[in-house]
């Protein structure tokens, strides 16, 4: 078998990729909704149809928060292992990975020698430092989520957001807004707050260059910039053909692991 499907069912979005001979042939991204199974199946079937394939033509590896909720998967892997493998696809010399998704954030250290994951850290059961945090704050600022990163980079005087709790931080943002603090300064403060939290977690397990930043939040340029400031070195994000593949890294990793297993 040469065609492998990786399905990354995240808490907010589901990503499905199709790989043949380690080449990305096609992909789909959709909201996960509350029905992981239905969304995963629909996206998978759609991908097969678009590429004139049958289920029996492909081997399916699921990953992500909802990895156990779909029955079309032939095997499952955690998103930690999947992101590490996906990051290696784009940057073979990767040593560390930061993945910020909708519901959680992770820092991963990869052995330079074996290429295996040797340590990782995840956020606590809390939205701080995740995509959901940005989503809530974008809502509070009434800025479309895709524009909030760019807005933050316009700031010359980032506001200080001291609350780590999403609910308290939202109140803090509203209060800053009421005091007349500029939107871009508040947005910068929000991004710095995420970078501080995720950066602290990453430093605890000793991340170092070459570090790959992936997950949906990696598409946000301000988080990337403030994370670089926090860590003190440049970080990389998967891009091909001018498009960010940060969000697909886990799904690609899952498909590659399926391919690795098939080869071994």
């Amino acid at each position: 078998m040469t065609v492998f499907v990786g399905i990354d069912i995240g808490s907010l979005e589901t990503k499905v990729v199709l790989l043949e001979n380690s080449e990305l042939l096609d992909f789909r991204v959709n909201r996960s909704t509350f029905d992981f199974k239905r969304v995963g199946n629909e996206m998978f079937n759609d991908l097969l149809e678009r590429n004139n394939l049958k289920k029996s033509d492909v081997y399916v590896m699921s990953t992500g928060y909802g990895r156990n909720s779909i029955d079309i998967a032939d095997d499952r892997i955690t998103e930690i292992t999947a992101h590490a493998r996906g990051a290696q696809y784009f940057f073979p010399d990767v040593h560390s990975v930061i993945d910020i998704g909708g519901q959680d954030s992770k820092a991963i250290v990869i052995s330079k020698k074996s290429g295996n994951v040797i340590d990782f850290q995840m956020n606590d059961k809390c939205a701080a430092g995740t995509g959901r945090f940005i989503e809530v704050m974008a809502g509070a600022l009434e800025v479309p989520i895709q524009n909030i990163g760019e807005l933050a980079l316009n700031s010359n005087n980032p506001a200080s957001i001291s609350s780590t709790c999403t609910v308290f931080a939202e109140s803090e943002v509203i209060s800053l807004f009421a005091k007349g603090t500029k939107k871009e300064d508040i947005a910068a403060g929000i991004h710095k707050s995420i970078a501080r939290r995720v950066g602290g977690m990453a430093k605890r397990i000793g991340v170092s260059p070459l570090l790959v930043f992936c997950g949906g939040v990696a598409k946000n340029i301000a988080v990337k910039k403030f994370l670089e400031q926090e860590l003190g070195f440049e970080i990389m994000s998967p891009i091909s053909n001018g498009q960010s593949n940060a969000q697909l890294t886990g799904a690609i990793g899952a498909a590659l692991i399926a391919s690795d297993q098939s080869n071994s």
């Binding site: 928060y65 892997i77 955690t78 998103e79 930690i80 292992t81 959680d104 295996n116 994951v117 040797i118 990782f120 995840m122 606590d124 059961k125």
Partner: peptide, 28 residues
């Protein structure tokens, strides 16, 4: 020796996340 520092309380809400941490550790 590989070590996982598994911090948690007794809440049922973080069962999924705990499961991911344990599985990832065993995959490591």
């Amino acid at each position: 020796f590989p070590v996982l520092n598994l911090e948690r309380d007794y809440s049922r809400a973080n069962r999924g996340q705990l499961s991911t941490r344990i599985e990832a550790f065993l995959e490591m």
